[in-house]
């Protein structure tokens, strides 16, 4: 107990913020790879693949991230897998982000106008060529604004890694609070740091959205 907020505490918080960024990027990369696979499975020609990937998305989107965190961190050791807080948080976020990004990107792929699919087929492109040369380049443009927006959700959701003992921003705040006991002040500082991390990305997402809207409006105007 004792002391007041000093520079060391702030440095500790900034270090926590650094881990929040690391975990967010890990979740974006891991979840991105998984989400990309899920998105492709969701538009697959095979009914079974579509059903299984759809079931995965429904299951994860119906479960709180917190419960997934508890399941990996407390559940896996209980059946014999040792797992570190970073691995548990990273794995949970990857599973979670994969389902949401998969759904966002499926929407992007499917909103590439139908004639583009038909034209690619008419040019005798193979299924892979059609995806990589025609559909995906256009889907990426549609998907960018919501993906940036979802990255804000990822940053906020990494705060839940604090419950499995991973020392990111929220957890480092709890640790400092345990010695200073000034919860309102400390959580306000933490909220401000999260805001500084998230707000520019929110703005960027909105700007991209507006620009994409304009671009699409122009290309679709003659039709």
């Amino acid at each position: 107990m004792g002391g007041s907020l000093n520079l060391n505490h702030l440095l500790f918080l900034l270090q926590g913020a650094g881990w929040t960024v690391v975990l967010s990027v890990l979740a974006l990369v891991g979840g991105g790879i998984l989400g990309f696979a899920v998105a492709l499975c969701r538009v697959s020609a095979s009914r079974a693949v579509r059903l299984v990937s759809g079931g995965y998305v429904q299951l994860i989107q119906g479960t709180p991230l917190l419960v997934i965190m508890f399941l990996t961190y407390f559940g896996l050791p209980a059946i014999g897998f040792r797992i570190s807080p970073l691995a548990a948080a990273g794995a949970s976020l990857t599973i979670y982000v994969g389902a949401y990004l998969g759904e966002i990107w499926r929407g992007a792929i499917q909103s590439v106008p139908r004639p583009q699919w038909e034209a690619a087929e008419g040019l005798a492109l193979s299924r892979t060529q059609r995806m990589t040369r025609v559909i995906l380049p256009q889907a990426v443009r549609i998907a960018t604004p919501p993906t940036v927006g979802f990255f804000v959700q990822i940053i906020k959701n990494t705060s839940l890694a604090s419950v499995v003992g991973f020392v990111e921003l929220a957890r480092s705040g709890q640790i400092i609070n345990n010695s200073l006991f000034e919860p309102f002040l400390i959580y306000s500082i933490i909220a401000v740091i999260y805001f500084v991390l998230c707000y520019p990305l929110s703005r960027l997402s909105r700007r991209l959205e507006r620009r994409a809207g304009q671009g699409r409006g122009q290309t679709l105007a003659p039709a």
Binding site: V152, K156, S159, L160, A170, G173, Y187, A191, Y194, C198
Partner: peptide, 8 residues
């Protein structure tokens, strides 16, 4: 919208 629910 730019801060986590846990902190709120």
């Amino acid at each position: 919208r730019n801060t986590p629910l846990l902190v709120q």
